[in-house]
């Protein structure tokens, strides 16, 4: 468990440092920063103080802390997938709009009745 704890801690430090870097470069919103920061802090707590996770789990009527973490993780992952999907849809729509605008602006009209021939 100790080796795993060390690996996870190193990963978490890197993750938080990266998060701060993203915030400084304005690549992430303050809300986004806070969300991910809390996620990583929660992961750290679960690994270093698993009994705390169990106490919280008990508050929600779940026996084991590990189960509680898995349930929360699944919810978070699904929510993120939903957000990514929705974002991809939006990007896709925007790409179509740009492609369409370029196509129409650069129309090549060779009709016989076209005065621009």
């Amino acid at each position: 468990m100790t080796i795993l704890k060390i690996i996870i801690t190193i990963f978490l430090v890197f993750a938080v440092l990266n998060l701060i870097k993203q915030l400084k470069k304005s690549r992430i919103s303050r809300a986004g920063f806070l969300f991910w920061f809390l996620i990583w802090v929660a992961v750290g707590i679960v690994f270093w103080r698993p009994e705390l996770a169990t106490q919280i789990a008990n508050q929600f009527g779940i026996g084991r802390g590990a189960d509680f973490v898995i349930y929360i993780s699944i919810i978070v992952i699904f929510y993120q997938i939903f957000r990514i999907y929705s974002r991809i849809e939006k990007i896709d729509t925007n790409i179509t709009k740009i492609t369409r605008k370029i196509a129409i602006n650069n129309a090549q009209d060779k009709r016989e009745n076209n005065i621009n021939n």
């Binding site: 492609t99 369409r100 370029i102 196509a103 060779k110």
Partner: peptide
């Protein structure tokens, strides 16, 4: 080669688009 209007999609957007 035809007397038509040609619109070029610079990225493939499929039939509906």
């Amino acid at each position: 080669k035809y007397p038509v209007v040609l619109l070029e999609h610079i990225i493939n957007r499929d039939q509906g688009a």
